[in-house]
Design a protein around this nucleic acid. Structure first.
Lengths: 189, 189
DNA sequence: TTTAATTTAGACTATTTAGTCTAGTTGAAG
DNA sequence: CTTCAACTAGACTAAATAGTCTAAATTAAA
């Protein structure tokens, strides 16, 4: 199986935009990272924006869905499935170090570009509904508002990951997120 | 009292960088916003970076400290002082719409620039210690880890504010943050 | 009022930016 | 082997970028 030029570009752009942001990543940086000529890049993508939007859909989105695609363990309370997913985040070094790539791009691009706003929000909504479907068949008290709880979970995880990369660590993430887990457990029954 | 050129620049840069980010804000945009010539700008600041670092210290920092500078109401439990501060965030329209300016800049600049990382973290640490001092003389159970709780509060607030500006609203913020408040209340005694 | 320092003015520069264009190369289908 | 489309190659362009420089205007001090 060969590593196509298009894949090579998407991987490089994902990596560069993740760290440097959209405006901090130049076409030349991408060409250098891929070691391909300009002609190839513009053969696959008609503009920088279209290229990064492809990264959102083909690189960032799958990574996001991955975290909430936990197979429910038999007899396990769904709320524990959720907790497992939240804890699993700490295993991804890039997340702990540089934060959520979707959230990063969202903060940079959503206020200034509608297409990014739409593409990113589509992923966000899908994540939220994935979380909702897990929460729904859990033992959470029926009087709890599930929609805001799903958003609360995402917001807390993203927020915890958004602190300075210089001081970030798995331990720090787990310490912070421990409060979220305590809260979730308190909602049981 | 006159509105100095330097203040005019800092106000404009704060506003532009808040929305467009560091790399999304050009010198020309700043000059246009201020309606001043280039010579004036470079008379006050030796570079774009130095200028934005001044904005961090002189515009962003005060806004951050403001939120945790709540005068404790007599006989009030400090945990309620904290809750009041968190709720007060919803009153600032720009925060609800565009998120925390410190967090935004942090995500863009900290991974790629040490000076920004340092300047921003200094403010973060001060916020954290302000929160800690409020939590310390509250009725929170002694077995709760205060340091991670302070970070949990910041992370949750920042995370709630970081969602798409297109879909943000005071109501949404309050719905999400309600879970944080419930959790804080559960820690009493 | 004279002098000196501060501030304004904006033309200019060197570099970087995203994107174009034409020609050449490669690889698969017939 | 030939043909044609897919892809590579990189020189080139026009606009934008951060920053420089010298001169003029303004303000404050003497």
């Amino acid at each position: 199986m060969k590593y196509s030029t298009r894949d090579k570009i998407l991987d490089a752009v994902y990596k560069l935009v993740y760290i440097n942001g959209y405006n901090g990543t130049s076409i030349d940086m991408i060409l250098k990272e891929c070691a391909i000529p300009k002609g190839s890049l513009y053969h696959y993508f008609k503009s920088k924006k279209e290229m990064v939007l492809a990264v959102v859909k083909e690189r960032i989105a799958p990574r996001m869905y991955e975290f909430y695609d936990l197979k429910k363990v038999k007899e396990e309370d769904s709320i524990d499935t959720m907790i497992r997913a939240i804890l699993k985040v700490s295993k991804k070094e890039e997340l702990v170090k540089f934060g959520c790539p979707l959230n990063r791009l969202n903060q940079e691009m959503s206020p200034v570009d509608d297409d990014f706003d739409k593409a990113i929000n589509l992923i966000y909504e899908r994540m939220k509904s994935d979380i909702l479907s897990v929460l729904k068949d859990s033992s959470i008290k029926p009087d709890v508002d599930m929609d805001s709880l799903a958003q609360f979970i995402i917001a807390t995880v993203w927020g915890s990951l958004s602190l300075s990369p210089k001081h970030s660590s798995k331990k720090r993430y787990l310490n912070i997120i421990n409060h979220l887990i305590n809260y979730l457990k308190s909602l049981k029954h």
